[in-house]
């Protein structure tokens, strides 16, 4: 039972980890992208569109292409979302909160729209989208995982995207902490005027990190639909995980490596209601608010304690216009 709980918590954690890693590197540049939930929907539907078109048009399914095409489609669509956000907030100095919220509406709309209308749009005669074939490749795990008992179950029984999430989080943590690019990016988010004076191209960093962040977050949507949901798209199925990912950013104190543990914790909290004995459905619903309550408490403690390490990047949410001093 414990192993099953941890395994499920981990599977819940993966989309959150993608989302929050993406949002962390976005926020590190000072962009508060509240469009991440929409970006994750877009990433998910991108994969669906790619897989669907491939399954429809390919005579036989090549495992390599079955993964590559949805992956690229997912990345492309999330990149597009990131570009929209950057163009409006960085180039045109639009308000970040409003832009982000519209991006969420837009992204969720795109997800649900294509999820619901894709079959009709391409004039296919299948009754509904079912991407079992490609999904199987996404869900492929190490062949010897189930021979290793609890160890294999707990650590080796996941698909490549799950491990990719952790790798990306670690790589991002290293980049932020140990490289010049990371240093410059953090400077842009903390104090764009200083970064500008030091010769760092503020706009470039904002674009790069926000677009990269969107693409990473989009992978969370891809993982959810192609792996977790077995390739079956259901409208609004992704739910509020995007917002949970944003909450996780606060909890991880803007550190991707902390987000790994945090996402597993949140993933556990997300499903813990299933594991509490004698809990009726209404009680389960109450339990589902725990991650949000924890985040709020964390937010309060860090602001009262004024802990410098747990604060958002100082220029978060503000647009930077050089001539405004």
């Amino acid at each position: 039972m414990w192993i099953d709980f941890l395994r499920r918590a981990f599977m819940q954690a993966i989309p959150l980890l993608f989302g929050s890693t993406g949002e962390i590197i976005t926020e590190k540049s000072g962009n508060l992208n509240l469009g991440i939930p929409g970006v994750m929907y877009a990433g998910g539907i991108g994969g669906v569109i790619g897989a669907f078109l491939y399954e429809q048009n390919a005579a036989s399914i090549n495992p390599f292409l079955a993964i590559l095409i949805p992956l690229l489609c997912s990345l492309a669509l999330s990149l597009l979302m990131g570009l929209i956000y950057c163009f409006l907030t960085v180039t045109l100095n639009a308000n970040q909160n409003v832009t982000g919220l519209v991006l969420t509406t837009f992204g969720v709309g795109i997800g649900n729209f294509f999820g619901g209308s894709l079959v009709k749009l391409v004039g296919s005669d299948v009754p509904s989208i079912n991407l079992n074939a490609t999904s199987n490749y996404f869900r492929a795990t190490l062949p010897f995982a189930d021979k290793l008992g609890w160890f294999g179950q707990l650590f080796l029984s996941y698909s490549f995207l799950a491990y990719l999430a952790i790798v990306i989080a670690i790589v991002m943590a290293v980049i932020l902490k140990k490289t010049r690019v990371g240093l410059h990016l953090r400077a842009v988010g903390e104090n764009p005027a200083t970064a500008d004076a030091a010769g760092i191209k503020v706009e470039k960093y904002k674009y790069l990190s926000t677009c990269a962040g969107s693409m990473i977050a989009g992978l969370g949507g891809l993982y959810y639909v192609m792996d977790y949901a077995n390739g079956v798209w259901s409208n609004d199925g992704f739910g509020d995980r995007g917002w949970l990912a944003i909450a996780l950013v606060i909890f991880a104190m803007w550190k991707p490596n902390f987000a790994i543990a945090g996402s597993i914790l949140f993933g556990g909290l997300y499903i813990i209601h299933n594991y509490i004995p004698n809990l009726d459905v209404s009680g389960q619903e109450l339990f589902k608010m725990v991650p949000y309550v924890v985040t709020i408490l964390f937010l309060i403690f860090t602001s009262i304690g004024k802990s410098r390490e747990a604060q958002p990047p100082a220029s978060l949410g503000l647009s930077y216009f050089r001539e405004e001093r």
Binding site: G109, I110, S117
Partner: peptide, 12 residues
Amino acid sequence: GLNRSFSDIIMG
């Protein structure tokens, strides 16, 4: 015969 979310896209 499109999905209801069409309006979200247009609005966006």
